[in-house]
């Protein structure tokens, strides 16, 4: 728990200090965006105050942090609306995409891993592994481009324009899910095979347990713990993949918007988006830690000892 807060705080510092790195004067750029090309010093000064660029870095950071906690992440330098408004209006689309992807990933991963582990080194396993490898090395933007520009546009299946709603979520979700699905299935397969070598499986077999029971009742729950841990990394992958997939499919979510903001050097939006992404990731990791603790009491004790040492 403490670790999570520390991560949040440290990333807020990191994110905010990006502002210091940015060369050029933001005030002039915002004025330029408003078509005031050669501002006089008074205008620049006024704009700087408006943008909150006055004061020492520490002072400004604290002001920004205070604002963030209250839900005020500043104003976009490009559109003039508040960051919260810009992100908030696009968030539901991304959430839909994320949920759909996550579901597809889990199902795919379980399928591929169980197929592979139930007949190791035979043809279903090899096929599953080849398929996994093929999708692992194909980046989402390549896959997405192939799907969209060939399957959709040239061959005319599905719909070209995505709306951000459930009706057009399939192709983007599948594209986004494939990356995590194959990573998870590889790891799950590894875990299943590893626990297949465990003594307690042989002992259960000696009591008469059949292969299916061994796999589902014993191997799978014991593999679930490391699998859940890896899922946390997968969520990071989903978050990171969203900007790319959303750009490819023109999905109106916060990922695509973040990319546009990066190109436009709209720092407040970048800061807000990064902070939000980090928050989401940290929360998910915490949830997974709780789930792992519930499943395996040994992990709970180890975690308590770890945080006790500090």
């Amino acid at each position: 728990m403490g670790q999570a807060l520390l991560t949040l705080w440290a990333s807020s510092v990191l994110v905010w200090s990006l502002l210091l790195l940015a060369p050029g004067d933001p005030a002039r750029r915002v004025l330029a965006a408003k078509n005031i090309v050669n501002p006089n010093p008074l205008q620049v000064s006024a704009e700087r105050t408006k943008l909150g660029l006055r004061g020492s870095p520490v002072h400004r950071y604290l002001r920004w942090l205070g604002g963030a906690v209250h839900g005020d992440l500043g104003t976009s330098w490009v559109t003039g609306h508040t960051v919260v408004h810009e992100l908030g209006s696009r968030l539901p689309a991304t959430l839909r995409l994320a949920i759909a992807s996550f579901g597809i990933s889990v199902v795919l991963a379980l399928l591929l891993a169980l197929i592979a582990a139930s007949a190791p080194r035979r043809w279903p396993d090899t096929l599953a592994r080849v398929v996994s490898l093929a999708f692992l090395v194909t980046p989402s933007f390549l896959l997405g481009t192939l799907l969209l520009d060939l399957v959709v546009v040239r061959w005319g299946h599905f719909r070209v324009l995505t709306t951000g709603h459930w009706d057009t979520v399939l192709l983007p979700a599948v594209t986004l899910s494939l990356g995590s699905a194959v990573v998870w299935s590889r790891i799950l397969r590894g875990c299943l095979l590893e626990s297949a070598g465990a003594d307690y499986l042989e002992v259960s077999a000696a009591r008469g347990a059949g292969r299916i029971r061994l796999l589902l009742v014993h191997a799978l729950p014991n593999s679930a713990v490391p699998f859940l841990t890896v899922m946390a990394v997968g969520v990071a992958g989903l978050l990171g993949g969203a900007p790319i997939v959303e750009t490819v499919f023109n999905w109106p979510g916060i990922g695509a918007f973040a990319v546009q903001s990066v190109t436009a050097r709209d720092i407040p939006v970048i800061q807000g988006f990064t902070l939000f992404a980090v928050l989401a990731f940290v929360l998910t990791s915490l949830l997974i830690d709780v789930a792992v603790g519930a499943l395996d009491p040994r992990a709970r004790r180890a975690a308590a000892a770890g945080s006790g040492h500090g």
Binding site: A4, L21, G240, A258, V262
Partner: peptide, 13 residues
């Protein structure tokens, strides 16, 4: 503990 692609995005930004 941070999603690496997001951080890279922020730094490039």
């Amino acid at each position: 503990g941070l999603p690496s692609l997001i951080i890279a995005l922020a730094i490039v930004g």
